[in-house]
Computed example of a mutant assay.
Amino acid sequence: MGLTAAKPLGIPMEQNVRLSSKPRNPEKDALISDPSMYRHLMGKLSYLTVTRHDISFVVQALSQFMNELRRSHYTVATRVVRYLKGCLGLRIRLAATQNAQLECFVDADWGTCLDAKRSVTGYVVKFGGSPIS
């Protein structure tokens, strides 16, 4: 990605960022003609979400723009890479407890998607207090 000298970040996505295929300022947020590098990066990030649940929401949001890629989408994707660079030591840790309870939490935000007016959902599954999905 060419980001070896980039400064690491503490969060994967800025607060209140609204990604859309129809930008407010099309001149500043132009379409990118060759989205192949973005698609390759999104494949890698999608694979990482199996063990890095902290980037799941951002990767899901960015995956919606594979066909109409804009500069803002690519900027957010590189921000995720910079975030991962800053937290290489994070991992899923299974606690050694006697608690073998399975817990599930689900949340939905109805109509969040600006383009399709669809809802966005998220979930976390915990086993013994440790996230597994």
Rank of each mutant, 00 (worst) to 15 (best):
M1K: 13
T4D: 15
T4P: 05
A5P: 01
A5S: 15
A6R: 07
K7W: 05
L9C: 06
P12F: 05
M13S: 11
E14M: 07
V17K: 01
V17D: 05
S20I: 09
S21F: 04
K22Y: 13
K22C: 13
R24S: 12
R24V: 13
N25A: 13
L31Q: 15
L31D: 11
S36I: 02
Y38K: 02
H40E: 15
H40G: 15
M42I: 14
M42P: 00
S46E: 07
S46W: 03
V50Q: 08
D54H: 09
D54Q: 04
D54N: 12
I55D: 03
V58K: 04
V58F: 00
V59E: 05
Q60I: 01
Q60P: 01
A61E: 12
Q64H: 08
F65D: 03
E68R: 11
E68Q: 14
R70F: 10
R70C: 12
R71C: 11
R71T: 15
H73K: 05
Y74P: 00
T75W: 07
V80F: 11
R82G: 11
Y83M: 02
Y83H: 06
L84E: 07
K85N: 10
K85F: 06
C87F: 11
C87M: 14
L88Y: 07
R93N: 11
R93T: 14
A95P: 10
T97W: 00
Q98S: 15
Q98T: 14
N99G: 08
Q101G: 09
E103K: 14
E103R: 12
V106E: 10
D109H: 05
G111R: 09
T112K: 10
C113H: 00
C113T: 08
L114C: 12
L114T: 14
V120I: 12
V124M: 06
V124G: 06
S130T: 09
P131N: 00
I132F: 01
I132W: 04
S133R: 03
